[in-house]
Simulated scan of single mutants.
Amino acid sequence: MSDDQFDEQLKSIYDALTNGPFSSHATFLGQLCIAWSLLENEINIFLISMMYPSPLNTSATVLNNLNLRDKIATAVPLAFQKNIKRLV
């Protein structure tokens, strides 16, 4: 198969996918996955900053062994405590 035929075949597959009935669903699903990973990244940054005196390797080890629900469950009380300490 020549490069031109291969390119045409790829273009036709791409056109079928982008004009298909599920293209908007796939786009939204992709955006949701990206937003989810950005949320997890922000929670990681927050939790690492809360564990500041400990070495970065220790913080990363702890965070790598937590799933996102556990990270959120950990971050909420820490954020609340930090906010109260700032007001006092």
Rank of each mutant, 00 (worst) to 15 (best):
N65Q: 10
N65W: 01
T58I: 15
L56H: 07
D70G: 09
V62Y: 08
P55W: 01
N64V: 00
P55H: 10
Y52N: 06
I43L: 13
N57D: 11
L66V: 04
F46H: 07
S37G: 02
L63M: 00
S37N: 11
L66D: 02
L63C: 02
L66P: 07
I45Y: 10
M51V: 04
A35S: 11
L68G: 01
N65R: 09
R69V: 15
S54L: 15
W36Y: 12
I48E: 07
I45C: 07
M51L: 15
N57M: 10
L68A: 06
I48T: 10
I48W: 02
N44I: 03
N64G: 09
I45D: 11
E40L: 02
V62H: 05
R69I: 13
E42K: 14
N67A: 04
L38P: 00
P53S: 00
W36A: 10
L63S: 00
N67S: 08
N57V: 08
A60S: 06
L63H: 00
I48Q: 06
A60E: 06
M51C: 09
N65P: 00
P55S: 09
P53G: 00
T61M: 11
L66C: 05
S49I: 02
R69T: 14
A60R: 13
S37R: 14
N44S: 04
T61D: 07
N67M: 06
S54Y: 15
A35P: 09
Y52D: 06
L66S: 01
N65A: 00
N57Q: 08
I48V: 14
I43Q: 03
A60N: 07
L38R: 13
S59M: 12
L38K: 13
S49A: 09
E42C: 09
M50F: 08
E40C: 03
S59Y: 04
N65M: 05
S49L: 07
W36V: 10
Y52Q: 13
D70W: 14
A35D: 11
S49M: 08
F46Y: 15
N64Q: 14
I48M: 12
N67V: 09
N57H: 14
L39V: 08
N41Y: 09
I48P: 04
A60Q: 10
L38M: 13
F46L: 07
T61N: 13
V62K: 07
